[in-house]
Amino acid sequence: MTQIIFYIFGAMLLLSATMVVVIKNPIHAALFLVLSFFSSAAVWLLLNAEFLAIALVLVYVGAVMVLFLFVVMMLDINLSTFKDGFARYFPLGIIIALLMVVAMGMIVGSDYFATDTYKQIDTSMTSSNTKLLGYAIYTDYLYQFEIAGAILLVAIIAAISLSMSKSKITKSTHPNEQVSVKKEDRLRVVKMKTEKKEE
């Protein structure tokens, strides 16, 4: 049963990941990326990593890809320019892909990633995957976790400060002014004579 489910989601993952690269329409590509996130979450669930799987859906599918789609839909993309690009960029793509495979192989195969250098988590404490992960992150790997958090914080601040550029185009309302407005500021009562109707 588990095997059948694994093969279904594994096939779905590979298929959708391929479609992300192959398909022409950028919106469809983004949606296939969502599908591939979803199926990889399902594969993780089969490995009993329920926290990571649901966090993947929550963070990437629920938030990141929504904003991604938001941006892609707003862009005015001319589909015809994509048609001839594939053959031209193919050799370059192959080189980059090979480089990435080599880099990944060197990192994953190195001593740092050998499983015995990492402390095994004591699974006798509790069966909850989330609790185990929490203990591991906040005790053994606290520094790495905090550094990652700090890097993300810097990225957030940088992104916000980039978007805060004081250009004249942006219009904004100030709630303080709106709330503190009085009748006299907006309303002017003008007395005037009644006009005579033309006969």
């Binding site: 949606l31 329920e50 649901i54 859906v57 929550l58 599918v61 629920g62 929504v66 938001f70 989330t130």
Partner: peptide
């Protein structure tokens, strides 16, 4: 009766937006 029930619910309610966007 899963361990991460609350997270599951949060993840699924966040998926509802796709219907609207698409």
């Amino acid at each position: 009766d899963i361990n991460a029930g609350l997270l599951y619910v949060l993840a699924l309610t966040s998926l509802a937006v796709y219907g609207v966007i698409i």
